[in-house]
């Protein structure tokens, strides 16, 4: 897994649980170091070992951790770059969802060896979208779930998202069905979708 992602995981554990927990996590995972480099690529097993030891330390399931990590990635003051770039996708949640179609290519252009899922958005109707993502690394769907929920919150949009996973031969396919309920702060139940 790319150093940027491992480094993100490091920031998440350090920021949310403290440096002590991070160092303990590394030790339990039998890592010979505690700092990931942004520009190196690490074995996938390293990331898995980290997730396992962190899960054992905090008594949390892998999916739960990854979803929380996804939320953290786009929260304020954390990995600001991620948040800035994703929010640049549009001024409303719907615009943001549409911009996800381009994120893979843009990210690959900037960091060619970054591990990132391909994403395809299908609009069923103005209040229901389905996001299909495919990723060669297995079991990371919950990260995207956390991210999608956090950004909905950020755009003041009340949403319900259901997540299902299909294990294909070479990739994981994660399917997110996103229902827009209403814009927060609007008393009526009709969705107010700003499209400019």
């Amino acid at each position: 897994m790319h150093g940027m992602i491992n480094r993100g995981l490091q920031s998440y554990i350090c920021d949310v649980h403290g440096v002590d927990v991070w160092e303990e996590t590394c030790e339990q995972a039998k890592l010979p170091f505690c700092d990931f480099e942004y520009m190196l690529t690490y074995d996938d097993s390293t990331t898995e070992d980290l997730l396992n030891s962190f899960g054992a330390l905090t008594h949390r399931k892998r999916d739960e951790i990854l979803e929380d990590f996804g939320t953290y990635m786009v929260s304020d003051n954390a990995l600001n770059v991620m948040r800035r770039l994703l929010k640049f996708g549009g001024s409303s949640y719907v615009e943001f969802l549409h911009s996800l179609n381009f994120v893979y290519d843009r990210a690959k252009m900037a960091v060619p060896d970054l591990d990132i899922p391909t994403m395809e958005l299908v609009e069923n109707n103005p209040t229901q979208f389905v996001l299909y993502t495919r990723f060669r690394k297995r079991g990371f769907g919950p990260t995207l779930l956390g991210l999608l929920r956090a950004l909905a919150n950020d755009y003041n949009m009340l949403v319900s998202i259901t997540h299902s996973r299909r294990i294909l031969k070479h990739v994981d396919e994660d399917i997110f069905t996103i229902n827009l309920l209403r814009k927060k702060g609007c008393a009526n139940n009709t969705p107010e979708l700003v499209r400019d």
Partner: peptide, 24 residues
């Protein structure tokens, strides 16, 4: 945001490169 630029404009892509470059 991206809607402030023409859909056929490479500004968004440029921003990805600029942001990533400053981190790296």
């Amino acid at each position: 945001n991206s809607k402030d630029f023409s859909a056929a404009d490479p500004t968004v892509e440029m921003l990805y490169v600029i942001e990533v470059q400053s981190v790296l």
